[in-house]
Simulated scan of single mutants.
Amino acid sequence: MRIESYIEDGWKKQGSLYEALGLNRKEPGILSVVGAGGKTTVIARLMKEHEKRGIPVVVSTTTHIQQIKASYFLDKPSGQRMRQILKDKGKVWMGYPCGNGKIKAFTEQEQKKLLDEAIAMGACVLIEADGAKGRPCKAPADYEPVLHPDTVLVLSVYGLQAIGAAIEDSCLRVDKVEEILGKSGQDILTTHDIAILAASRKGGRKGVASSMDYQVILNQADDERLKEAAAGIGEELFRQGIRRVHRTTGLSEETGQLRVSGQTRLGGQEGTEE
């Protein structure tokens, strides 16, 4: 695993994603994860890192996320059961099973009650707030993202393996990507394009309120070409005022396995999202 954060004069290696995001300087709260190319991997990594620090953590969704087969899965909105699982396991993954190995959010009222209780218990809440259908890059639909109003940090994830591929092959919501970039679906996605998408209020920053911190994760920096691509994106975003940009590789290492709907998936192998 390697995590680096862009600082004004270059990239600095970080010991953990938790530290890179500055969570060691914040009270636990709600983190919403959007984008493509590794959202569930990021959530699984953060869940593990909170667990190592003895910080309770709750994983939920405002849309859909993977269902897991684990003793810490909560499939009904029971505050008593959630508290017991947090006490016994230190972590909860919750939502209504809805088929195809996915879960959907509890109702707004149910979820609010549970999340309020979780935060009162000192838990960090990780919410997957949109879908990507397995694509490494995307722009949000009109109804996306669904950000919890009490979100304190929005993490926008991009899979660097999208760079160099045609927009229509690498991106979800091709029409929205075309609109933001002023390109066609046959055009090749570039590092500059990723920076534009990440900085755009119609792209990665859509719906992000002034009260919410916004950070970008450039995932899958698996070779020198992609590391250099991430470097260019980080520098461009820094110039546009986005002060926390991270490039990551190997985030699924040591996070354990997510047992999904009768099969085993590693955290880094994100399934189809709705």
Rank of each mutant, 00 (worst) to 15 (best):
Q14N: 14
E224Q: 08
E254L: 12
M47I: 11
T272E: 15
K112V: 06
H148Q: 01
I103V: 15
D169W: 03
D142W: 07
Y18V: 08
G268N: 00
Q186A: 10
Y143Q: 01
P97E: 04
D88E: 15
F238D: 12
D75C: 09
R25E: 14
V92H: 00
G250M: 11
K104M: 10
K13P: 00
D222G: 02
V245I: 15
I180R: 05
V177E: 10
M212I: 06
H64M: 10
A198V: 02
A36V: 05
K104W: 01
G204V: 05
Q80E: 15
E108F: 07
H50N: 15
A221N: 07
T264Q: 04
S170A: 15
I188H: 02
P56G: 07
D175H: 13
G101L: 02
S78H: 12
A36I: 07
M47T: 15
K76G: 01
G250L: 12
T61R: 08
L155G: 04
E117V: 07
V33F: 03
V216K: 01
L266S: 11
H148M: 03
G262L: 04
V42T: 14
H246S: 12
L17T: 09
K48Q: 14
H246C: 15
I180Q: 03
G271F: 13
Y158P: 00
F106H: 04
I119F: 05
S184R: 14
R205T: 01
T107A: 05
E110T: 10
M1G: 07
C137L: 15
V42N: 01
P28I: 12
L23N: 06
I194K: 08
C98Y: 12
Q240T: 01
G15E: 11
E270P: 01
I127K: 03
K39G: 02
D187G: 04
I196A: 02
M82A: 10
E168P: 00
R244E: 14
K89Q: 10
S170E: 11
P56H: 11
T107F: 04
F73P: 00
D169T: 11
D75Q: 12
R53V: 06
L17D: 06
G234S: 09
Q186P: 00
I30L: 11
G90Q: 06
K76V: 14
D88K: 13
Q220R: 09
A20T: 08
L46A: 11
F73T: 03
A70Q: 06
M94G: 11
G95I: 02
Q84P: 00
S170T: 09
S71Y: 07
S170M: 07
I3E: 09
Q66H: 14
K12L: 13
V42Y: 02
G35I: 10
V152W: 01
D169P: 00
A123W: 10
I30T: 06
T264C: 00
T40C: 04
E235W: 07
W93M: 13
G256R: 09
D116S: 13
I65W: 08
